[in-house]
Simulated assay, not measured.
Amino acid sequence: MGAFLDKPKTDKKNEKGGSAAFKYATSSMQGWRVDMEDSHTAKIGLPQLPQWSFFAVFDGHAGSKIAEYSSQHLLDHVLSHKKFQNFVNNGEQYDEMTDEDVKEAIREGFLNLDVKMRELSTTRNDNDRSGSTAVCVFISPKKYYFVNCGDSRGFLCRDSNVHFSTEDHKPGNPLEKERILNAGGSVMIQRVNGSLAVSRALGDYEYKNVESKGPTEQLVSPDPEITVVERDDNNDQFIVLACDGIFDVSTNEELAEYIISRMELHDDLVKVCNSVVDTSLNKGSRDNMTMILLTFPAAPKPSQEAKTREEEMEKKLKAVVHEICSEVKDEPLDMSALMQNLAARNDIENLPPGGGVFAKRCVVDAVFKEYVGKTAPEGS
């Protein structure tokens, strides 16, 4: 559930890096939540596997301990598996690990990490009730291994379309609900026992105490769903990994379109990520927000045509906002009403796809200040 602040915290933490094969950037923002419970991992070139990379977003709930520990140790639990160790020891004999070997290592890495964190919590006697979703991608020279446990999400954009997306693990999903009921639980208001909104997660040990059931048969399962996607270096554009604070207010397609439109303006990936986070806040997200963007050589490039189109759109938007504000005589201006008015109009062409006027809140706000003498409170 979570508690909320009177005003969102909009400071962002960023990270960026890259290699010859791809570039990446991250953005994290606390938003309206009282605490920041997200964490993430970004590793280019894995220990003893320099051609592999790993990226992950962890969305914590009821605390940040599980998310933080997972971000620091999940990769180690996967790489220490005998399948990866055998591959490393005999690596010169093979181009790629088999998909089944990689899946086995990832799956057991998740399960072993979950056991380890439970042991640590018991040893500390801290009664930690936190849990965390996880969405990850392992990148090998030829494949992507998408991994999902919970309702954070990852997708691949190829040829300007969402080519693949992970599926959220929600209690109302038929297979998830069947497992929950078989473990003696219930699904009410789309939540496990009427409380937890995800059906798979690391941690959440109060939902993993059915003695007659195995670790993947509990009310909440740490079992990840793993999908293998062949790389297409000529057409793969970017991968997004993000928590539900992003996807609560945007579909996969909307987010992909918005990212493409921003990349056509500039090649600053941090700026693109921050724009997604800000736009998500403006669209109504009340959650923590974390996003990782990985781009490949086929990603959209900046163009003067796109920049000119954006400039003309902003000029038109400013004129419309001036017109609306100047017509308000006797009643005080209301930013929320103004944004809704603008969102309902159809005479402002070339607003960012997937973001609309909410992606241009700063432009609206600049004009709004001229009429009220100060910036409108966020979310007002």
Rank of each mutant, 00 (worst) to 15 (best):
V249N: 04
N209H: 08
A67H: 08
G194K: 01
G60I: 07
A3P: 00
H322Q: 14
E349N: 11
S380T: 14
A67E: 07
R179Y: 04
D204M: 07
A376C: 13
A319K: 14
I226D: 01
D168T: 06
V88R: 05
A344P: 07
Y207C: 07
K23T: 15
V372E: 14
V277H: 02
G354M: 03
F4M: 14
M117A: 09
F146S: 08
C325T: 14
D223C: 13
A134W: 02
I189K: 13
D347S: 07
T26V: 08
P300W: 01
M289Q: 13
E314M: 04
P353G: 02
D38M: 08
S212A: 08
E225K: 09
D114V: 02
K208L: 05
M313Y: 02
E311L: 10
L294R: 00
A306K: 11
C149G: 05
G45H: 10
F358Q: 05
D101W: 01
S212C: 01
C273W: 02
K82D: 11
D38V: 05
S165R: 10
E96P: 00
G245N: 02
L241S: 09
L111F: 03
G184V: 08
K82Y: 04
E349Y: 03
L351K: 06
N148P: 03
D233S: 10
A256L: 03
G2E: 15
S380D: 12
Q93I: 05
G131D: 10
S326D: 15
G91C: 10
V272H: 00
C157K: 00
I226H: 02
K12I: 14
